[in-house]
């Protein structure tokens, strides 16, 4: 929470990117505490590693300091407050965390947990659910990754304007 507040406060984009990496590591730790090592690994590698590097690469193409903007944007504030209030209101109706009688633990989860080794021979339930029971969803996810990658590549490659000379982009020969 403190890190998130610091990200919102700071005007230095470099500091914001670094804080974002710290925030991702905190989230990875939280996910690990919640017994989700798969998601935690992804968060640590993507959130803290790759996306930080990509943001730094983007920073290199812009300026480090954010231009100060003292106008108070009312509509976004209203939208975020209303959305947050709706989510809080909805969270009230959820069953308590870890409640074994919750609907999520009654529908298909028992079958996944009980029959997973018998049906798939894969002891890691997460892998079995992702690749086998939910194979269609994962296929869709892979296609989404493909589409996202293609979109970014097209946007970044589409028009290549030479920037001012003398600035080496991040990762370019550091010798």
């Amino acid at each position: 929470m403190a890190v998130a507040a610091a990200i919102a406060r700071t005007r230095n984009l470099f500091a914001a990117v670094a804080l974002g990496g710290i925030y991702s590591f905190c989230m990875a730790l939280a996910l690990l505490v919640l017994d989700a090592p798969d998601v935690s690994m992804t968060e640590a590698a993507v959130g803290a590693g790759v996306s930080t590097v990509l943001l730094l690469g983007a920073l290199y193409l812009t300026r480090i300091e954010e231009t100060p903007n003292h106008r108070i944007a009312l509509t976004p504030l209203l939208v975020s407050v209303v959305a947050g209030a709706t989510l809080l209101y909805g969270a009230w109706a959820l069953p308590p965390f870890g409640d074994p009688a919750g609907p999520i633990h009654q529908h298909v989860a028992p079958r996944y947990l009980n029959d997973v080794v018998k049906e798939t021979g894969v002891p890691n339930v997460v892998t079995a659910v992702l690749a086998s029971y939910r194979g269609f969803d994962t296929f869709g996810e892979t296609v989404v990754v493909l589409t996202g990658g293609l979109g970014v590549l097209l946007l970044l490659r589409g028009r290549r304007r030479p920037l001012s000379k003398g600035t080496a982009p991040i990762g370019k020969d550091a010798t």
């Binding site: 990509l54 690469g57 983007a58 290199y60 970044l156 030479p162 982009p169």
Partner: peptide
Amino acid sequence: YYAFAGRG
């Protein structure tokens, strides 16, 4: 990453 780093 290549696309970002190769820009400019």
